[in-house]
């Protein structure tokens, strides 16, 4: 019995010593690496940020691991995309078991609040239309206007959770927005050769980037969202690409290349790999690099 109480006492001590590790910085866990990058840019040295979804994987289909549960459990702030991009975040937060990180809790930040959403269904959605998003297209960070909204929301939330460093957060926010303004100007200039051009894509996750660049993307290798490419769809796209003289097949690097390569061989089009999230490719080290990379991929193709 003595041993039992000794073990219990040791566990108790460990528990509270683990809690006491919290120092000057606050712990932020983001679902996606892109959100973690934005938090890091605004939080700077005052935050310790990590993310759940490895950027090399499709953010729709992540299997959170026990280490992720523990990270979320220890987090002072949980940042996510909201909407229905990450269906896995609900069981993750359930497993973490902290009510303040749950939807509506004081320590969670839904970045979709206030951003401009595209493709909001006009009718009640049905699965007959594939794995569609019931609130609108959730890949909203690929247009800088939305990133501006997200950055402001992050700064506000960090200030709320950690008011001591509020001034620093607002300062870094201003610097980030200034840099974003400068970059947007350049990106718009770089995109001159892209405006009005057309491409096909693997999945409907580039609608925001396409709008920003004035690129038309109307057809996808997936016959319906979330449904892998079928021979019939590939056959249709062969005709579509030939008829409209399309030269680019766009896709994120985590989608399988087989169907895109096959279509490229048959039509002479080129597969253009784009980054959807920070860290997805070595060239996409942060949000600015991600947009630079995507622009350079597209401009070099459409030149």
């Amino acid at each position: 019995m003595k041993h039992f109480f000794a073990v219990l006492g040791a566990l108790w001590a460990l528990h509270f010593s683990a809690g006491a590790v919290k120092a000057e910085t606050i712990r932020v866990v983001a679902t996606l690496s892109t959100f973690a990058d934005l938090v890091e840019k605004i939080g700077g040295e005052d935050v310790e940020v990590s993310f759940v979804a490895p950027p090399r994987f499709n953010p729709h289909f992540i299997e959170p691991r026990p280490g992720d549960v523990l990270k979320v459990r220890r987090a002072d702030l949980f940042v996510h995309a909201g909407l229905d991009l990450e269906p896995w975040r609900y069981p993750l937060v359930d497993a973490a078991g902290k009510s303040e990180l749950r939807p509506g809790g004081q320590r969670e930040l839904d970045l979709s609040q206030g951003v401009r959403l595209l493709e909001v269904p006009a009718q009640v959605p049905t699965r007959a239309a594939g794995d569609i998003h019931i609130y609108g297209n959730p890949h909203y960070w690929l247009i800088p206007d939305n990133v501006r909204v997200m950055a402001v929301a992050i700064a506000e939330k960090l200030s709320e959770v950690d008011p001591v460093h509020s001034e620093a957060y607002q300062g870094r926010l201003r610097a980030f927005l200034d840099e974003l303004d400068r970059r947007v100007e350049k990106w718009r200039q770089d995109a001159q050769g892209i405006r009005g051009k057309e491409a096909v894509a693997y999945h409907n996750d580039l609608v925001y980037l396409a709008e920003f660049l004035g690129l038309r993307v109307a057809q996808y290798l997936e016959p319906k969202p979330g449904i892998p490419p079928t021979p019939r769809q590939i056959q249709f796209l062969e005709g579509y690409i030939a008829e409209r003289g399309i030269g680019a097949i766009l896709q994120a690097s985590f989608y399988p290349r087989g169907s895109s390569d096959s279509l490229a061989r048959k039509t002479g089009a080129e597969v253009v790999l784009l980054c959807q999230n920070v860290g997805e490719r070595p060239e996409c080290g942060d949000y600015f690099a991600l947009m630079d990379y995507n622009l350079s991929q597209l401009t070099s193709h459409f030149r």
């Binding site: 206030g114 401009r116 595209l118 019931i134 609108g136 206007d145 402001v152 929301a153 001034e167 926010l173």
Partner: peptide, 24 residues
């Protein structure tokens, strides 16, 4: 507003016309 340090998300929210509307 940002430069004056008194910004809230609502300031920026007002600029883009949100297309978002609840489905039901």
């Amino acid at each position: 507003a940002l430069r004056e340090g008194s910004v809230g998300p609502q300031v920026v929210l007002a600029s883009p016309a949100p297309e978002r509307a609840p489905v039901t």
